[in-house]
Design a binder for these strands. Structure first.
Lengths: 349, 349
DNA sequence: GTGAAAGCGCTAACAA
DNA sequence: TTGTTAGCGCTTTCAC
């Protein structure tokens, strides 16, 4: 909380513009709000008065009566019970994932004149976030949540705050969401390995308490089952670079025959490539590697990463569109939009 | 702009809580605002009433009278006249720079209960951003601006909106800012090359219309001048990965004898390493490379990047502190806080 | 087509 | 210590 701002040179009010123009407050208000029933001549006069006084409407006053704020929150949720080496804030803001989501959402929001408040919500902050949303700071919420048992989506649902999820919710919920066909993506990776004639596929999967982690693992396994693999080694990572490195090392130590590695996101793949290098494995000759995301990390790898592309920017843009629709029509049916993944073939597999 | 939200189940007002508790509005207000002059017994009653009714204060109403919003904007400014391959939004949100700044700022802002609105401001959006700020949406602004001729800082100054800059302004301005000793950083790189016995240093510098670009180049040149280098080849890049790759290629083609390369940020260094690899140069054997930032990119490189560390998170945190100070005391003297860079030695030099 | 007036939910003088 | 009251600046009926 900050101290009150001192009086200072306050900007003009509607009242003052009205006086300047010699009309009533209502007329100025109508001109500002583009109401068409204003005499063109008066409108002209008022517009000049606005220009002359340098008037801008006061947001709080307007918001108080209209109950709109023209801004939405981007909530990055993380439930309790996860352990990470890196602190929450640097971890999420260093991950290219969030950047792509932000860019995609703003691509839609900006032209609509809607602003974005970014709200990290680790477990201790959940209550504050809910409070914030209840205070009417924003018209709606984009929720980035991956943990299957994350309570936040349900709570937001209960609050009747318009909201859209970044992925299929862990439990069914009457809330719009966007997702990618996770299993299909994983299958693409599996098929790539089969096509390359690899015999010992394995995977650094995502955290098994996330839907993406579960789905990608299941998709990979079931696609390989079709080719006779009743079982596939898997070691979970935490979607961070260091986590991927660690998991790959564990995996390759336990299963040194591994010649194909599916890593559940590009950031972990970066770490996995490092581990492989340290272990004296060549990529792709000894071990073929496929990542997931098609983020900047994929290009940073040597060799560059073959990966499953999910169009995060477009997905976030769609989230924003779904949210706007929901804000405009809160009782509409929740919608889901599922995107198709594609394999992007580069040097690693 | 969005349509008005329908009435729906409005949350309780102060009035209703007061009625429930059998006290006046003011008393409830005092309890909410932690005013100490409330009888403990009454306070207890009121708190129960708040609990029972599920009351939360309406932000707009409060903001209208207090003239505070408890939120600040993070404006990422970019003046007209720059050409980039990538669109503005994906470029800035994909750059680890912004992520580190955001994380650092939130580290200070969050505990204070202050929220962050993220506002990209390319040239066409400048007017809207100024308008937004004048409307009183936020209490202050953190400005990320690098272009020496960027008009935005001056305009914000004129608006009397509390603001803090991410770097020394292009022209002197009565505004607080944070910076790193750019020239010292560049000198560290130069000295590293001298220590390694390199004879043909060169630099992929930053855009010459940015203070950082200018300072790092000047610092590198003047440090080398001390060692007899009257002139040093330099090729400007645009601080992007692709730009660094292009610039390094140009430089190495024109000056194939180059055996030491200072690259003005890590993102460009990543690209430069790629270019060197393509040109058949080994790093560090044939060409030693030093970057600037110590971002995640530095770790993604092979070999890992020796780089000049600037503590961006701490710098952003300091920006936030300076801003809070300014909001609380708008007439205070503008302050500058300059951080010390350090060289982080890794594999590339 | 325009103006007068009520009121959005809150804080902060001021009185009691 | 508590209550009464007057706005904060705007939109929005409702008369005219």
């Amino acid at each position: 909380m900050v101290a009150p701002r001192p009086p200072g040179p306050r900007s003009p009010t509607l009242e003052q513009v009205a006086e300047y123009a010699g009309v009533s407050r209502s007329t100025v208000s109508r001109v500002i709000n583009q109401v068409s029933t204003v005499d063109p001549e008066l409108r002209e006069i008022v517009e000049r008065a606005i220009e002359a006084t340098g008037y801008v409407p006061n947001h709080a006053a307007r918001s108080l009566v209209t109950r709109r704020t023209d801004s939405v929150a981007l909530v990055v949720s993380e439930p309790a019970g996860r352990e990470f080496a890196e602190p929450f804030l640097s971890r999420i803001f260093t991950d290219p994932y969030l950047g792509r989501i932000t860019a995609g959402a703003l691509e839609v929001l900006r032209p609509e004149g809607i602003h974005l408040v970014i709200m990290p919500a680790d477990a201790p902050a959940h209550q504050q976030v809910l409070r914030y949303l209840r205070q009417g700071h924003v018209d709606g919420v984009l929720i980035i949540s991956s943990h299957v048992a994350d309570p936040l989506p349900q709570q937001l649902c209960d609050l009747h705050v318009p909201a859209v999820l970044s992925a299929r919710p862990g439990r069914p919920l009457p809330m719009s969401y966007v997702d990618v066909e996770q299993q299909t993506g994983a299958r693409l990776a599996a098929e790539r390995f089969i096509a390359l004639g690899r015999k010992h596929p394995a995977t650094v999967c995502g955290p098994l308490d996330t839907t993406a982690g579960q789905d990608r693992l299941a998709g990979f396994r079931s696609a390989l089952a079709v080719h006779g693999y009743a079982w596939v080694p898997a070691e979970p990572g935490d979607f961070t670079r260091a986590g991927g490195e660690r998991a790959a090392r564990t995996l390759l130590t336990a299963y040194p025959e591994t010649d194909a590695l599916f890593v559940a996101n590009d950031l972990m793949a970066e770490g996995a490539m490092q581990a492989l290098r340290d272990l004296g494995r060549r990529v792709p000759e000894d071990v073929a590697v496929v990542g997931f995301d098609d983020s900047v990390s994929a290009l940073a790898c040597r060799p560059q990463l073959t990966t499953i592309r999910q169009p995060l920017e477009e997905m976030a843009a769609e989230m924003a569109r779904l949210l706007l629709a929901r804000i405009r029509e809160p009782e509409g049916r929740p919608r889901s939009v599922i995107f198709h993944p594609e394999i992007v073939e580069r040097g690693s597999a």
